[in-house]
Design a protein around this nucleic acid. Structure first.
Lengths: 117, 117, 117, 117
DNA sequence: GTGGTCTAGACCACT
DNA sequence: GTGGTCTAGACCACG
């Protein structure tokens, strides 16, 4: 798979989003070991520092935790993952509705357009 | 009215979006004269150059045109405005659906969540 | 006829060029009376001041002369018109060759491309 | 080398033309890194922002692309470069022929004059 | 009074 | 060190 990063948006945040959705969607299971920084750097074709920065944010969010010399792991707190997922979704929904309203579309019209797709 | 610009996002792009919505929503009619660069600068409380940058993007998009020393005007090409509006909407819809799918939500689930809001 | 003025270039200079070529190409004959400022302004759909500025340049160039209350006329100096025409042509040729050379085309290649058109 | 910018013409557009010719003529190869904004500013003895403006036009044209914080690079799309070169040439040829025709010269006469130069 | 251009200088995020 | 953004302020051509 190719990763096409958007240049108008910090790469490390794009990586945060990728790994976050891997966790919330279950591609990465609770307790599972993450790739090493070097492996992610290769996979994403970015500078290792960029990966470090992304992972430290995930660690702040408690979505992953580090075992000192052993690697980084997905949290075992499934409740947290679930909450994170819902919070994420709600934010996206609200942002989306807000933008569409600004353009003059009501919720009903939006649903109609979605159905037609 | 107060303009609260989001700091994580270039002001000039936010101005582009504001004026674009004014055009696509009909607040600014085809052929209508825009405020002068200096007036927008006052209104938005930004530097005139920031306005210049925003307007030059709208001009690239053909949504407005400049009459040398006379001011800037909304395009008379209503077809273009309509296309622009639709393109804009479709992009937002697709982006939104893409993000949601990446998080593991189907179109039906999304519609359901929207209805519940 | 429609006049589509190029916005990136002063209108009065574009008018100078139009009238100049009318004179050098013989559309306007030596001694012939020009339109009035007002008539040109209507014809070109520009501000009368713009026409005045254009005509004053032509007068500086001696291509036209003013009879006080009577109007403006094409010069009777056919030699001048001819010289003007040649000078004009040579400048255009040189500019063109210069630009093309900068892009890496020799005179021979240019002639070849012209023939193929 | 000295850069003598023509005062009747925006410097940033003159820079656009210089770099465009360097790309289309192969002086700058596909994928090659451009000088930094600051280096160009020194070389051309202009303000960095003037360079920024020129480069942003080249980026709009897709002739160059930016790698965030890493520099700017010539596009790798050689087809695009070729098309750009040809389009550029054709435009110049057409403009030139158009002007000359307006002055009453046929293509044959133009070719004759070119040969005599 | 209008937009166009340019300068000087500053701060910031990113790698 | 790189580009991106923004400000303040200046001068100019144009109509």
């Amino acid at each position: 798979m190719q990763y096409n990063f958007n240049n108008e948006y910090p790469i490390y945040l794009q990586i945060v989003e990728i790994i976050t959705s891997e966790i919330t969607s279950g591609t990465l299971k609770p307790g599972e070991k993450l790739l090493s920084v070097r492996e992610y750097a290769q996979k994403f074709r970015v500078n290792p520092n960029t990966v470090v920065k992304a992972l430290s944010i995930l660690e702040d969010d408690k979505l992953i935790y580090a075992e000192r010399t052993n690697g980084k792991f997905v949290t075992n707190d499934e409740e947290l993952i679930k909450n994170f997922k819902e919070k994420n979704i709600m934010k996206k929904l609200d942002d989306f509705l807000g933008e569409m309203n600004q353009l003059g579309y009501s919720k009903e019209e939006i649903i109609k357009m979605l159905k037609e797709k």
